[in-house]
Simulated scan of single mutants.
Amino acid sequence: MNIATAEPGVDERIELRQSEQRARPWQTVVWNDPVNLMSYVTHVFREYFGYPRAKAERLMMAVHHDGHAVVAEGAREQMELHAQAMHDYGLWATVRKAPE
């Protein structure tokens, strides 16, 4: 039997599934607030994330109309840094696991 073409056993499939779940990214979510101007939120997204004006405005409009927007996805530690930076700018942000 060629090991390279062998079908993985049950334990290997469970391990792979658990690995895929761990690999699911985290998100930084910015929430709407009654304090910050829309122009300021756009400015923060452009300055901190380096987003082009159109993307920053689209995200800002999502915050305004939907109440929140996912502004970044990736490793948990990086998303926590982004959320802290948003707090430093005076925006309300949280970190969450990306939905499946």
Rank of each mutant, 00 (worst) to 15 (best):
Q84K: 15
G9W: 04
V41W: 03
A69W: 00
A4Y: 13
E100M: 08
D88N: 06
A54Q: 04
A62D: 10
V29A: 06
S19L: 09
V41L: 03
R13G: 07
A54I: 02
D88T: 05
S19E: 13
V35I: 15
L91F: 04
M79D: 14
G74Y: 02
A56T: 03
A4R: 15
Q18S: 08
E100T: 09
V35D: 05
Y89E: 00
R22Y: 12
R17E: 15
R76E: 11
K55N: 08
E15Q: 13
A4T: 05
V41C: 05
G50Y: 13
Q27P: 08
M38R: 11
A98Q: 11
A62W: 07
K97I: 07
E15Y: 06
Q84A: 14
Q84Y: 12
H82D: 12
E47H: 06
V71H: 01
P34N: 11
K97W: 05
E80A: 14
A93K: 02
S19V: 02
S39G: 08
D66I: 01
A98P: 03
W92S: 09
G50T: 10
M61D: 12
A93P: 00
T42L: 00
L81Q: 15
N32W: 06
L81T: 10
L37A: 12
L59Y: 04
E73W: 01
D33M: 08
E15S: 06
V41K: 04
R24F: 06
Q84T: 13
Q27N: 09
M86L: 10
A75I: 10
K55H: 14
E47A: 13
L59S: 04
A75P: 13
W92K: 10
A93F: 02
G50R: 02
T94Y: 07
T94P: 02
E77L: 03
A93W: 01
E57W: 01
R22W: 00
P25C: 07
Q78M: 12
M1G: 13
R53W: 08
N2G: 04
E7C: 01
V44E: 04
E100C: 01
T42A: 03
E47Q: 14
T42Y: 03
V71E: 04
Q78H: 08
K55Q: 14
M60A: 04
R46N: 08
E15F: 02
L16V: 00
H65Y: 12
H65V: 11
N2P: 08
L16P: 02
Q27E: 15
A56S: 03
G90F: 09
